[in-house]
Design a protein around this nucleic acid. Sequence first.
DNA 1: CAGGATCCTTTAAGATACTG
DNA 2: CAGTATCTTAAAGGATCCTG
Lengths: 120, 120
Amino acid sequence: MADTPIEANSPMLLVLDRVANKWAVLAVSAVCNQPKRFNQLRRELGGISQKMLSQTLKRLERDGIVDRKVIATVPVTVEYSITPLGKTLALTVDQLRIWSEQNIEQILAAQARFDAAAEV
Amino acid sequence: MADTPIEANSPMLLVLDRVANKWAVLAVSAVCNQPKRFNQLRRELGGISQKMLSQTLKRLERDGIVDRKVIATVPVTVEYSITPLGKTLALTVDQLRIWSEQNIEQILAAQARFDAAAEV
DNA sequence: CAGGATCCTTTAAGATACTG
DNA sequence: CAGTATCTTAAAGGATCCTG
């Protein structure tokens, strides 16, 4: 890790602001292996509202993480896919997923200890 | 990345909820190399309010990411340091920092393209 | 020095209804 | 089907004052 403290508007924070939220991670992950349609994603991402999904996808598209392709069927179909840039991000985020899975027990144990110590 | 979509309460999301916010990342990063005191951290993390810092540190402590040590001086001193668990997390988060730095240009370029296309 | 408690403002998020 | 617009509610965040 870096010796220098992270500044308030570093690339890291800019990326975190976009990527480090539940729905963005879910969406990237869902789209990562094959293109998906809007409502298909909605169903796949459990409780997401269409507003949130719409927002999330638009942000990801703007950042060049996912690609949006309108197919002129009737009614219209829209396909979301991962970009090359998005793919590398997904790989990186996946590292965090692996860390999470490997350490979730330790975290939960720490929480339990903390809470036990707290309630006297 | 995983083929299976990330479920709504996976370890990943639990970790993201804690770790993937500006202040937590800043705090972990600030404490990563040597222990720091409360107000020392406050100064180092630019604009953080003491409420936010307090909240952030408490959460990180609860999760076993940082360690809190009260030193009985007068007035009292409190020292925050990284735990072994926190250290491995910092390493992982650092990967994301590296990705961010390497790809920030591409992201900004994508945003510029998107915005240019949007305003007609 | 290191915080807790309170109040108040701003932002995020969900529900609902409507459109090309 | 794939969204946008609007309204309302929930949560995050900041400012201020206070204490061991």
